[in-house]
Computed example of a mutant assay.
Amino acid sequence: MMSKLTIDAARTIIRETLAKAHDMGLKPMSVIVLDAGGHPLAFEREDGAAPGRYAIAEGKAYGAVMLGMPGSAQMARAEAQHYFMTAANGAFGGKVVPVPGGVILRGDDGEILGGVGVTGDTSDNDAEAALAGIAAAGLKGDA
């Protein structure tokens, strides 16, 4: 395992996430990798994916990084305490998309290195593809 998020790792995550999505027979995907500050390192939108998927992918990854919880936990929190996620999203300018497919990237010590946002198919399928891409890059994913 590695404990640093590099541009090469980000490119590997994207390439291998898309490969997993193809193996799974998913719809056209969009994948973004953000650093620990929530800034984009790399993004790719496949042919046939709607242009608005950039904002969705970024929102999934951004919420994971900024809240320190994966999309699945954000969705559960939104269902249990809607007011909290609404307030948090307001604090972040409406950028958070609290559903699966927003995955935290962690180093060996558990430190948050960044986040991955995947969108295009069902949220659970998006998350599964992301985890495969993250593992291929030698990092840990928290979906």
Rank of each mutant, 00 (worst) to 15 (best):
K140Y: 13
M69D: 09
D108L: 11
F43N: 04
G133A: 08
G141F: 10
I14Y: 07
A88G: 01
I14T: 12
A21K: 00
L34M: 11
A64H: 02
H82K: 03
K20T: 04
A88W: 10
N89T: 05
L26N: 08
L67K: 10
K20Q: 15
D126T: 01
T86R: 15
P28L: 07
A135P: 07
A10G: 06
L26R: 08
T86W: 10
G102W: 09
A127D: 15
K60C: 05
E46T: 01
R77A: 14
A64T: 01
L67Y: 12
N89W: 06
A135Y: 05
G117W: 06
A49G: 02
E128V: 07
A21N: 02
D108W: 01
A19T: 04
D35E: 08
D47Y: 09
A130S: 11
R53T: 15
T6L: 15
G101S: 06
A64V: 02
V103E: 06
V118Y: 09
F92S: 03
V96D: 05
L105N: 01
G38R: 05
H22G: 01
A91D: 00
E16Y: 14
G71A: 04
Q81F: 14
E58L: 14
Q74Y: 11
D126C: 06
K4H: 03
S3M: 03
A42E: 15
I104F: 08
S30D: 06
G71M: 03
P28N: 01
R11L: 13
V33A: 09
E16D: 14
I7A: 07
I32T: 10
I32W: 03
H39W: 07
K140Q: 15
G102K: 04
A57G: 04
Y54D: 07
S123H: 12
P28V: 00
M69F: 10
P98A: 14
G102C: 05
N89Y: 14
P100A: 09
D108P: 00
I14H: 12
M24A: 11
L26M: 15
M24G: 09
P40S: 12
I32R: 00
M75T: 02
A132G: 12
H39K: 13
S123M: 11
